[in-house]
Simulated scan of single mutants.
Amino acid sequence: MEFTLPQWGQLITLIMMAFALGMDAFSLGIGLGMKGMVTQQLFAMSGAIGIMHVLMPLAGMTLGRNMNGLVGDVAVWVGGGLLCFLGGNMLWSSLREAGASTDSVTSLWGMLVSSFSVSLDSLSAGFSLGMLSTDTPLALGLMGFFGGMMGGLGMVLGKFLGSWAGNYGEALGGLILMLLGFKFLL
């Protein structure tokens, strides 16, 4: 099967967009990995991020056909606020107790909130894609793949950096999440 020039252009554009959206998942992954996640938690979180990177753009594409200008900025602000909250919670927990557990982020609720907050920019991208005649399965597949893969790579890197940083790994991870959240807010 041969692609036409517009199809190649759309494929390259979607790959670049999925990679760019995955960079937030990578940053989140570094922060979470510094908490010392076990391999099972790493895979579960990567999966949650990948799933949210499919569901959020799908919701955005669906809603974007009607209300593109109304919700885009609000989604980014909510995501930034959630990341600041999660990062602040990690930072406070690390300062309060030296051996703080990873339960707050690796519980089902923590995974949902973390993956949701980092996927809100995918919702905004979905609004834009909903206005265009985009190949929806291709776009969603690429966004889910890149989001999950880059989140997982970030967690592996964060796990390495966290062991290198010692007791300050969780505090550093929380600081990274807060900075990522501030990036959304500003």
Results as ranks from 00 to 15, higher is better:
Met155Cys: 08
Leu186Lys: 14
Ser128Arg: 13
Ile51Gln: 03
Glu97Ile: 15
Ile176Lys: 04
Leu70Asp: 01
Thr62Tyr: 07
Val156Lys: 15
Met34Val: 01
Leu180Ile: 10
Gly158Val: 04
Ala48Glu: 02
Ser46Val: 07
Ile30Leu: 05
Asn66Ala: 14
Ala139Phe: 03
Phe43Gly: 01
Gly64Arg: 12
Leu95Ser: 06
Gly9Phe: 00
Asn89Thr: 15
Met111Gln: 12
Met52Phe: 12
Met178Thr: 06
Gly72Cys: 07
Gly81Phe: 07
Gln10Asp: 03
Gly158Glu: 08
Leu63Ile: 14
Glu170Ala: 15
Gly33Gln: 11
Leu5Val: 10
Gln7Gly: 04
Ile49Ser: 06
Leu95Gln: 12
Trp109Arg: 15
Gly141Asn: 13
Phe145Ser: 08
Thr106Glu: 07
Val38Gly: 05
Asp103Pro: 01
Ala100Val: 09
Ala18Ser: 12
Phe85Ile: 15
Leu175Asn: 04
Met52Asn: 06
Ala18Arg: 04
Thr134Cys: 06
Pro6Cys: 09
Ser115Met: 04
Leu120Arg: 10
Gly22Ala: 06
Ser128Gly: 15
Arg96His: 08
Met23Asn: 05
Leu108Thr: 14
Met149Ser: 12
Gly60Phe: 03
Val76Met: 14
Val71Ile: 15
Ser94Val: 07
Gly79Cys: 10
Met61Gln: 03
Gly88Arg: 02
Gly99Tyr: 09
Leu179Met: 13
Ala48Gln: 09
Gly99Pro: 02
Ser122Ala: 15
Cys84Tyr: 05
Leu82Asn: 07
Val76Glu: 03
Thr136Asp: 00
Val118Ser: 04
Phe3Glu: 01
Leu32Tyr: 01
Leu138Thr: 10
Gly152Gln: 05
Gln41Asp: 08
Gly110Cys: 03
Leu175Phe: 12
Gly88Cys: 07
Leu185Thr: 09
Gly152Ala: 08
Leu180Val: 09
Gly169Gln: 07
Leu21Ala: 12
Ile30Gly: 00
Gly64Ala: 10
Glu2Thr: 15
Leu63Ala: 11
Leu172Gln: 04
Thr134Val: 15
Gly169Ile: 05
Met52Arg: 05
Met143Glu: 04
Thr134Gln: 06
Met17Tyr: 00
Gly174Thr: 13
Gly166Asn: 13
Gly173Leu: 06
Thr134Leu: 02
Gly181Arg: 05
Ser107Leu: 07
Val78Asp: 02
Lys159Asp: 09
